[in-house]
């Protein structure tokens, strides 16, 4: 084959691969929306599920997802940001940071069901007097462990992107290390950190396997940390696999996709604003 012919064929193949990737997404989205969009009504979003979710709406699972996400972030964000600050601002390359970094990377690869097993053994069983067994507390603590690596990594990147001259300027004015970090570095890195947090939200909203083992799965809205709950993703699984109410499953799936879409959009929007600010 002439090289020029090979080049043409290869080019077509590469275009086809990229096109297939995009088409796959369009097909999945199109199919879910076609089957689920008509389910999304005001009533669907604001009434409680009835008979295990076969009838009614998904109101309590939406609220539970919001509460669960909020509590999980409340636990994970401070720890994640503090860890990233330590790893970027306070240490030189030592064996201690190497081990910490290895732990963070390893944690990122652990499958969610294994987090679920751990959460079950530790938070649900061992810490039952505190967490109340299967509960919002157990689920959120498990979820927090899961998003920690993502948060640490994105925050590290954000902090590394802060120009050194900022820090030097601060030190030159007599500020201490902590003052420099807390008043100069973190505020500058904040938009990028926020992007990381938003991406973390996406992961929490879609999480299911670990929560099946820790969150309890009640269809009531939790009123305290020791109450069980059920997120939209868990609810989708249950109505599709156990109840067999496919229309409800498609409706929930459509709501989930729209949620993820908005999460991605806002993360991109913040990044876009940032780039504008830095290039201006």
């Amino acid at each position: 084959m002439r090289p020029q012919t090979a080049q043409k064929i290869a080019g077509a193949l590469l275009w086809a691969a990229a096109l297939l990737t995009v088409v796959t997404l369009v097909v999945i989205l199109g199919y879910i929306f076609m089957n689920g969009m008509h389910k999304i009504t005001w009533e669907f979003l604001t009434t409680e599920p009835e008979s295990m979710g076969a009838k009614g709406g998904i109101y309590s699972t939406i609220i539970s997802t919001v509460i669960f996400t909020f509590v999980t972030l409340l636990i994970a964000v401070p720890v994640g940001i503090a860890a990233a600050i330590y790893l970027t601002e306070y240490t030189k390359r030592s064996w201690a940071t190497k081990i910490i970094r290895f732990g963070t990377e390893a944690l990122a690869g652990i499958p969610s069901i294994v987090f679920g097993l751990f959460g079950f053994a530790f938070f649900v069983i061992l810490l039952k007097p505190i967490t109340g067994g299967w509960s919002l507390a157990s689920g959120s603590l498990t979820g927090a462990c899961m998003i920690l690596p993502t948060l640490i990594r994105t925050t590290e990147e954000a902090i590394k992107a802060v120009p050194n001259s900022y820090r030097e300027g601060s030190y030159a004015l007599g500020a201490t290390k902590w003052q420099t970090v807390s008043r100069i570095v973190i505020p500058t890195a904040l938009p990028a950190i926020l992007t990381g947090i938003i991406l973390g939200i996406g992961r929490i909203v879609g999480e299911t396997a670990a929560l099946l083992l820790t969150l309890g799965g009640s269809l009531y809205i939790p009123t305290k940390l020791t109450d069980p709950a059920s997120t939209m993703s868990m609810h989708l699984y249950k109505v599709a696999m156990e109840v067999g109410a496919m229309d409800m499953a498609f409706g929930t799936a459509a709501v989930l996709i729209i949620t993820v879409f908005f999460i991605n959009m806002s993360a991109n929007w913040i990044m876009h604003l940032m780039r504008k600010k830095t290039t201006a």
Binding site: L25, G202, A240, F261, N264
Partner: peptide
């Protein structure tokens, strides 16, 4: 404008939604 957002969305779709799509198509 197209491919990168598409890949991001593919990564963001919850696995239960993939499951639902798979079992019905």
């Amino acid at each position: 404008l197209v491919i990168r957002p598409a890949i991001e969305l593919l990564a963001g779709i919850p696995s239960v939604v993939y499951g639902l799509f798979g079992m019905t198509t």
